[in-house]
Structure formats: C-alpha cells, structure tokens
Design a protein around this nucleic acid. Sequence first.
DNA 1: CATCCACAGGAACTTGGGGGCA
DNA 2: TGCCCCCAAGTTCCTGTGGATG
Length: 492
Amino acid sequence: MPDEPQTDGRRTADRDFEVDLDDVLEDDEGDEGLFDDLLSGEPIFENKEVLRPSYTPHELPHRKDQINNMATILVAALRGETPSNILIYGKTGTGKTASAKFVSQELEKTSQKYDVPCEVEYINCEVTDTQYRVLAQLANTFIEQNRGFVDDRVEELQDLRNEAESDPGALAAGDADFDSVDAVDDRIEALLQEKSEMEDVPMTGWPTDRVYTRFFEAVDYVERVAVIMLDEIDKLVEKSGDDTLYNLSRMNSELENSRVSIIGISNDLKFTDFLDPRVKSSLGEEEIVFPPYDANQLRDILQHRSDVAFKADALSEDVIPLCAAFAAQEHGDARRALDLLRTAGELAERDQAEGVTEEHVRRAQDKIELDRVVEVVRTLPTQSKLVLYAILLLEDNGVHNVNTGEVYNIYKTLCDELDADVLTQRRVTDLISELDMLGIVNAVVVSKGRYGRTKEISLSVPVDETEAVLEADSRLSDIENVTPFVQARFDN
DNA sequence: CATCCACAGGAACTTGGGGGCA
DNA sequence: TGCCCCCAAGTTCCTGTGGATG
C-alpha cells in the first residue's frame, strides 16, 4: 500500500472534525468504558434522520399550491397522455426538490395502482453535468428496466410453455397466439437475443449521438410515459449548452410507443435567457415558482419536523424562532434552518446538556460556516490552494484589497520555491473568480482610472483556520519553509 | 476631452487521460 | 495497435473598458 501514510494523515485530520475523541478520553476516569459517558446523558434526539437534507417529508407545509399545480399537470401521464413540460424556479432550500420528489413518488405509486406504465427518472445536473453523462445515465436506467421487462415476459412464456406441454389448449388461451410449443420457444429465444443486445452505455468513449440513439431505443422499447426530472438544470445549460434539452424536447415527435416529459428545476430565474427559443418555449410550457419561505413559515416547518426529531421538551422555547430567523436572513433557506437545528442539537448532545438552548443555536451557526469553509478549502485543487495562499500571505502582511497583479506575483514566487507548475495570469484570474464564487474571497472589479482596471480581492474567511487547513495539505507541506522567501519580496 | 493603464473575460485551441472499437 | 470519442484543465490570442490624469 504505497499511499498508506496519506490515508493515515486524513484519518487523523477527520477525527478532529467528527468527534472530539480527546475530550472523551480526558473525561474517561474510573472503570467506565469509552462510550458509557456518552450514553449516560439524556438523549436529545428521537429521530435525527428527519432533519437531514436527504429526507423527503410526507408533508410539505406552505407548498400545497405548488404541489397541486404539479399534480394537475402530471395527471395527464396517468391517462397515458404526454404531460406538459414543467419548469420549476426557486432559490436553494425553498422545497423545490422535495416537492418534486414527493409528487413523483405519488405519481409512481398511483401509476402502479392503476397499472399505467409511467416512470420518473431523477437526475441531478450538478453531478451529471454534461450531455453525454445525462444521456448515458438515462439510457442505462431504461436499459436496466427493459431487461427486467424481458425477464418477466420470458418467465411468463416459459410458464405458458410448460402448461402447454400438458395441455395444448393453453396456447390458445394465452394473450398472444402461438400455434405450437416451438413457436413459444422461438419467441423466448428471440427475446433473450434482444436482451443480450441491451448492453449498458459505457461511462465514456462513445460518440454522443450513439448514446442518444441507444437512449432513444431504450425509452421506446415499451409503451410508457417517462418523466425526466432534471434538478439544477441551470448548471447543465451553463456547462454544456442547450443541446441536451433540445434533443430531449424534440424526442416526442419521433417516439412511437412512449412519451417523454421533462421537469426542469432551476435555482436561477433567468437561465432560460440563454436557451434556444424553441427549447425555451417547449420546456417552459408550465412554470411554477417557489418563493422563499419567510420566518413564520420556516418556524412551521421546523416545528413540524422537530416534533418527530426531538424528545419532548428537549428544545427551549426560543430555539425554533431563532433558527427560523437566522435562516430567513439567508434568503429563506429551509435546508439551512434544518441544518442549524440539527447541529444545535448535536452540540447540545455533546455538551450532555438537558436540552437545546439559544446558545447552542448561535454556536451551531458559527460551526456550520466554519465547517463549510474548512471543507471547501481542504478539497480545493492544488493550484487554487496556491492562489489562496498567496492572497493569505498578502493579507498577513497587512495588504488589504489586493489586486490580481500582486496576487499573481506572489503566486509565481510561491510556485518557483515549491517547484510547482506556474499557470498563466489568465488562468489565475479564473481561479480567483472560482474562489470568489465559493465565498472564500471577495473579488470586485474596480477601475482605478489611469492605474487600470483590476479585481480588488479580500479574504472573507478567518485567516488562521484557513492557513492551518492549507498547511495540512501534503503537497504544500514545504510551504512554511518557503514563506520566508516570499516574505523577502515584501521588503523590496 | 482624449488617453491609456492593467487588467477582465470571451473564443478557440492544446494537452493528456479517461475510454471504445476493428 | 491505431484511430475514434469525451472531458477537464490550461494556454494563446484577443477585444473591451471605467475613470483618473495630463
């Protein structure tokens, strides 16, 4: 195992963020075991899962209108018609995804009840962010399903065949007319042959149009209505244009057996501006807007979930209003509110407190922010880390609102000393913009008249923590030894 | 009022690494 | 093996520009 030391290093680092083992060990006196202490405290949570973002609730307060609206549109699928395409708008944490998933679950449930072939495929375009990958993923899920259909059909035919061997009359009673047992065998063989041709689309390697064809065939293999749900659709358009959407939206005119319908979910209200007008009109047949929650609505949601999540009386009175207020400031983000509540609970649990207090919420607020920053910085690519370190050094030396040129100069010396590749300034400006979008730095374009136009960059995270995280990176391990060389530059 | 700085940021291209297929 | 594809990261070349200054 050549990478053993690295793994070890990561484990130690993780430990500090996950559970504070040192604290536990210090308290470990007498013959009590390691976990006894932790267990002895009155538990605060009843069911923590319902506070996690992955949990899809059965009831979404203050979203009845939107849900009914979606249902009205999608009910067409149950009648075997093509539902209109839907575009859903709303900022993060406004319940778009949860509502859409809820509706699709109900849709699939009902479709099974009435035996109407109708499926919903969910794709998160932030993860699956190119045309190729979207098509490949869709193709593979449908291919998988089709194999299932073939298996079912083959089984059916085999039963029929077995029955027919003892009672020739059974053939006529079957749903398809076979005049002999051999005919049934032939059919089975043909089906198995078809199945063997249903290979998965590889993750990479094929031309995109071939993937498209494969996907097309897979959808059209049986009669059905396929609802394709594209979450964070703006990310897809931003990265790889509207070809995917164009292809998907014109599919219906060529499909013979099945119909497809698209549900696009977007954070960005204006993303249709970049679309081809044809795509825009077809995709936006129906539009549903999810407005941000206000503090009162957030309070309802939190109340709702905390009844299930916490033990009775575990929350002091002002906890929920405070969480709601904090989250309402962040454009009414319910996910954030739930996170806050959960983290506050975890902090209280770790303190072995009786219940969650206002104080825990405030600490949770800080912890979430710091955790986010630490995680983002830790997972940054090396080059971005170098750029960030350059900004950090400038800040350390009392230079605030630095501009691109200064950063680039420091970055260059840093790379020289570390023996790393030096990127062009063009690339570094992009990296700075990325850091800006991640909220690690704040970069504003300003014009200094005669002295040019540049970005004014300032750090928007705590210096010490960030520095610690950067120095923990093995690839930058020499950085501390290098700093003096860079420091020397400031003397000039 | 024109000039001109110091970049911003778009477009097209290259490189190298993932893979398929005959 | 050679030729095809896709993709991320990076490079080259480029045009655009807000406003202090001469």
